[in-house]
C-alpha cells in the first residue's frame, strides 16, 4: 500500500463485509506526543477469540480465498514506523482496530488522500453510514453521513451531485495529509 489512507480503506471494507451499519474512522495527532492515532470502529458481526487470534496471520481469512493480507500489512507498516496495531472485537458487538504510527518516524508512510477513501466508501456502499473525524492541534473536523442523509430528505446520498458536494466538503476540511 502506498499510503495510510489506502490501508484505512481496506480495513473499512472489512467492516462492510462484516455487515457493519456504522463505520467510524478517527485520525488524531495527540497533543504532546509524536503519535498518529487511527481508529476504525464498526458495529459489524465481530470476531470470537479464536478468529481474533488468527487475524494477523496472512494465511488466515474468513473469505473464500487463501490469504488475508489487510491486517498483517497494516500491522507491519505501523510496527516499522515505531507504532502498533491492536484489535478489540466481540461477536455481535463489532470491532475496533487501533493503529499507532510514529509521526516523525522515517518509515511512516504518508497519510494520503483520506477524502478519496471516505468518498469511495460512501459511493460504494451508500446504504451504510460513516463518521470521519480528525483532530490535529486546534483543528478538528467531523462528518457524519446520518446527518447528511437526514438533510437530503430522501434523495440518495449516492446521487453524483451529492457525492461531488461531499467531495468538495472533505477536500476543504481534511488537513491530515502529509
Amino acid at each position: 500500500m502506498e499510503d495510510i489512507s489506502l490501508h484505512i480503506l481496506d480495513i473499512a471494507e472489512n467492516s462492510v463485509r462484516a455487515e457493519a451499519r456504522l463505520i467510524e474512522i478517527v485520525l488524531a495527532r495527540e497533543p504532546g506526543s509524536d503519535l498518529l492515532r487511527i481508529e476504525v470502529n464498526d458495529d459489524g458481526r465481530g470476531m470470537d477469540a479464536a478468529t481474533l487470534a488468527k487475524a494477523r496471520d496472512p494465511f488466515f481469512t474468513t473469505k473464500h480465498k487463501r490469504t488475508g493480507l489487510g491486517i498483517p500489512l497494516l500491522s507491519q507498516a505501523a510496527e516499522q514506523a515505531g507504532g502498533s496495531l491492536t484489535i478489540d472485537s466481540n461477536p455481535g458487538r463489532g470491532t475496533r482496530v487501533t493503529v499507532l504510527f510514529g509521526w516523525a518516524h522515517l518509515d511512516r508512510p504518508p497519510v494520503g488522500d483520506m477524502a478519496a477513501t471516505v468518498l469511495t466508501l460512501i459511493a460504494g456502499h451508500p446504504d451504510r453510514d460513516y463518521i470521519y473525524e480528525e483532530r490535529e492541534g486546534e483543528h478538528s473536523f467531523r462528518i457524519d453521513t446520518r446527518e447528511i442523509k437526514n438533510d437530503l430528505e430522501g434523495m440518495p446520498i449516492s446521487e453524483p451531485a451529492v457525492l461531488s458536494a461531499i467531495r468538495d466538503l472533505l477536500k476543504q476540511n481534511i488537513r491530515i495529509r502529509e
Partner: peptide, 11 residues
C-alpha cells in the same frame, strides 16, 4: 476493492 485491488489502484 479487496486488499489486492486497493494496492493496485482500485480507489
Amino acid at each position: 476493492m479487496g486488499t489486492c485491488g486497493i494496492a493496485a489502484g482500485a480507489r
